[in-house]
Design a protein around this nucleic acid. Structure first.
Lengths: 303, 303
DNA sequence: TAAAAATAGTTGACGCAGTCCATTATATTA
DNA sequence: TAATATAATGGACTGCGTCAACTATTTTTA
């Protein structure tokens, strides 16, 4: 158990960290958006085929409040609404160019502030603090989160797959011709999905999707591993390995002899997972049309 | 510099920790008080000779808002106001018994929640997380806080000295006959204060008092070290040692041959500072009237 | 020593984030 | 075909927190 001194330390940590948060928050407020509005905008940018209802569920915000916020965004030209072809109740929300610009501004404010705080530290301290944060996050999350891995449902497809696009690529500042490419391969994968030869699993944290992995048949002997993704807060906690184990088990079960995957050089953390599971790099391929110096790599494993 | 993965990790940490905070906050809100009200009540309980203005400055809250809050507290019987004898503009705020009860309830909610989160961890993990928190707090604070050590002013006396009482003793669950004793020695010290033979320094963090140390002349050869105190978030960052260095330097300068201090056994962190500066324990003294199993110790150093 | 400026506190008016409830329109289910 | 669920909107309201004006007292200064 904790001593009185240690409890005081923890409350001291809370105080200091809350103070930091407050600074970031007030910087955001100066941009003219509320914190809730910021969250909503960021969520819109992360969500393909976004609807008001998805936002309501994802962020636990009141329906009417959301309705008014969206109306305001539309009025200010940040978003556009398009009627769904299949369900007339639904109006899809899409960011305009101006909206994207505003979001960039907002996330810049946020990350610049974090950057400023960390830049005051020495290179060494930066790494130490980062490690400490990862440690705390992992320990505290493990103790409180409810984690499940489940098969995908129709509702996951548009939402989580688009997330994959955001996290796996946008984090690495890829752009341009790339976005359309991902759309295409994702929808093609789902269209051709066959439960006998393919797999698409969702890692769920407290009821919210937080990661994914997929296996796609190429031929009777070969499968491709795809859409391997983890939300930042789920990383380095063993969930990546669990998803990978599950996927490779499926491949062995179905009699695949070889599994390959395509990734890019910068994807450091994921690479670690690939290596520990026995994948090895077989080739590199320049993909500078996706971004400066991006190199696509092909990794394989023999089962 | 940070990699994209590391920045994502930090934002993941923010997300997880903010979530934890939100839980604590909503637990507080269920008690029927706003978060601001909770802060105000806690500040009142920590501040001897508390006035509305002190609260306004300390918590950066609007005058009118504070006025209404205090009126509400008074109406609900949590506090009592008494007119100052020396300045008719000032009304002192004092907690009633009911008020103290409510504060205990509030801080119990807070620390129970923290306790619950940590109790889900193994003993070992608890220590690891605690260490990580201390580390982050220290590194981030050092980079952002403006620290000064300055002589005391009249306005510090009532405020900071009462803080000493709270932190140094209340944290350790001392009670009863003790409170009056501290009041007495503090006011006696200030009354007899002589800048030639005594010292009382305030450690200030971002303009807010966050620690103190004092030297009181006993006779021409002997001085007593008193009121050595640090706010929890300032501990383990070397400020304790800096205060101590300064105090002992003063003693050497003034020609004292011996410095002693009285402390209690549970004061683990402070003891470490005493030891590293060359103090040694000379006697123990049962003080169970201050609390269960409390033992007062006398430490000395020869200069 | 009288006027000006600062300090402590109160009161009125109000903005605005966020909530609750009712309503419309469409889709799904029984 | 009626009953129920879902998507979204609009009206009314609560209440935290802010701004500004005002009283009363003390301190400064000219």
């Amino acid at each position: 158990m904790f001593s009185a001194d240690q409890i005081a330390d923890i409350q001291g940590f809370n105080k200091v960290y809350q103070n930091l948060m407050k600074q970031i928050d007030s910087a955001i407020l100066k941009t003219g958006y509320t914190l809730t509005e910021k969250d909503v905008l960021l969520e819109i940018s992360k969500t393909e085929r976004c609807t008001a209802n998805i936002l309501i569920q994802q962020l636990s915000i009141d329906r009417s409040y959301m309705s008014r916020m969206i109306a305001k965004f539309e009025k200010h030209g940040l978003i556009e609404k398009t009627q769904s072809q299949t369900d007339n109740r639904i109006r899809y929300i899409r960011l305009t160019q101006l909206g994207q610009k505003e979001i960039n501004r907002l996330s810049d404010v946020q990350s610049n502030h974090i950057g400023n705080v960390f830049n005051k530290l020495s290179e060494e301290d930066q790494q130490t603090v980062w490690q400490a944060m990862v440690l705390i996050r992992n320990k505290l999350s493990d103790a409180n989160d409810v984690i499940t891995i489940r098969p995908f449902t129709q509702s996951d497809i548009e939402y989580v797959i688009s997330r994959h696009k955001t996290l796996y690529y946008a984090e690495r500042h890829l752009s341009g011709t790339f976005s359309g490419y991902v759309d295409e391969i994702v929808y093609r994968f789902v269209e051709n999905f066959n439960p006998e030869s393919d797999i698409l699993k969702i890692l769920e944290c407290n009821g919210v999707p937080a990661g994914s992995i997929a296996i796609a048949k190429v031929n009777s002997e070969t499968a491709q591993l795809r859409f391997f993704m983890l939300e930042p807060e789920m990383r380095q906690r063993g969930y990546g390995n669990r998803l990978m184990d599950m996927a490779l088990d499926f491949c062995r079960e179905k009699g695949y002899k070889k599994v390959f995957l395509l990734t890019i050089t910068a994807q450091v953390v994921a690479r670690h997972v690939y290596e520990t599971h026995g994948f090895y790099k077989v080739s590199s391929n320049d993909k500078s049309e996706w971004g400066d110096g991006v190199v696509e790599e092909r990794w394989e494993i023999m089962l």
